[in-house]
């Protein structure tokens, strides 16, 4: 493999990692705090992508579409959280998983009803290319990577510097104790849920120009996203970052060797991690409720 090829593959891999990170960090965070596995996040991912598609094709502004997608998804997520999750939080992971799968399916049905089954293309907002180490690469991929880095730093600052962020971290360690401090944990739950949904919608909108939007897009990425969360360890942000980076590169290099290998490699890695650590790379064995 020549240097230009290598550089191109690494950048493609990093862009994939960026999207995986946005999609899976919220899942991991909400598991850590609320002990839920929220499969309806993949609906917000799809909604984010579809809103981006609609606004980009109607108004011609991709970034406005992205914003619309995030707002629409958060509104939807707020409705779902208030009406369903309030009754789910107390009931355990299994319950949230099955119920949220129901929500996801309803959403997919609705998307099919509104937009039909045909995949739709979304225009890339930035068409320029840059030269790097003898290869030319689309600027958009670098924007995606940059956005993920900014989000990661922002998230870290939010969790470490703000009072709400500190409350979230305390909640991940021990929800009961946090509640004992007089903090309304349910408001924090809602906040984290919306944060997760916003990130999922952003991931969907950002991903849209790279793939095509179609009703099953959420289901297509669900397995990879959860393999990343599992490999990193449920509840660990650090683990999510590490495994996003790992899987992004593995998939990018997989594509250049034999396309099916790219799809299967994350699964093989997951099995290998299970052999050594059944709770993922950074997952805690004691993180149970």
């Amino acid at each position: 493999m020549s240097v230009p090829e290598l550089a191109g593959t690494v950048v493609i891999g990093l862009a994939m990692s960026a999207i995986f990170f946005m999609l899976s960090v919220g899942l991991s965070l909400s598991y850590g705090l609320m002990r839920i596995v929220s499969l309806d996040q993949f609906l917000y991912y799809s909604v984010g992508a579809y809103m981006t598609y609609v606004v980009t094709s109607q108004a011609g502004n991709f970034w406005l579409g992205l914003l619309t997608g995030v707002i629409a998804s958060c509104t939807l997520a707020l409705t779902v959280e208030k009406s369903l999750y309030r009754r789910i939080y107390e009931k355990g992971v299994m319950f949230s998983m099955i119920t949220s799968y129901g929500v996801l399916l309803v959403g997919i049905g609705a998307i099919k009803y509104i937009w039909g089954l045909v995949p739709r293309p979304v225009m890339t907002p930035i068409v320029g290319h840059v030269s790097l180490l003898g290869t030319t690469l689309p600027v958009y991929r670098f924007v995606v990577i940059g956005l993920a880095v900014v989000l990661y730093i922002g998230l870290r600052l939010f969790l470490e510097r703000t009072i709400v962020g500190k409350a979230i971290r305390a909640g991940i360690e021990d929800v009961d104790k946090t509640e004992g401090l007089g903090i309304d944990v349910y408001r924090i739950f809602t906040l984290v849920f919306l944060l997760t949904a916003g990130l999922s919608a952003l991931a969907g909108g950002i991903h849209a120009p790279l793939i095509m939007v179609d009703p099953h897009m959420g289901l297509k990425i669900i397995a990879t996203a959860f393999m990343i969360v599992i490999i990193g360890g449920l509840g660990s942000i650090k683990g999510t970052v590490v495994s996003s980076l790992l899987i992004g590169q593995v998939m990018a290099f997989g594509f250049t060797i034999w396309a099916p290998a790219a799809e299967m490699a994350p699964f093989v890695i997951m099995l290998l991690v299970f052999l050594i650590r059944p709770t993922g790379l950074y997952g805690s064995q004691y993180l149970r409720r």
């Binding site: 598991y31 596995v37 992971v93 299994m94 998983m97 669900i222 397995a223 959860f226 393999m227 969360v229 599992i230 449920l234 099916p260 799809e263 299967m264 994350p266 699964f267 997951m270 099995l271 299970f274 052999l275 059944p278 709770t279 993922g280 149970r288």
Partner: peptide, 29 residues
């Protein structure tokens, strides 16, 4: 042998991944 060592959330999600991969293997690989 591998999966039953997992706690319940991991078990469910690992099976979901298994299903997706199985589909892919038989459809394309």
């Amino acid at each position: 042998g591998l999966f039953v060592r997992l706690s319940s959330s991991y078990f469910t999600l690992a099976n979901l991944a298994l299903c997706a991969i199985g589909f892919f293997v038989f459809q394309r690989a």
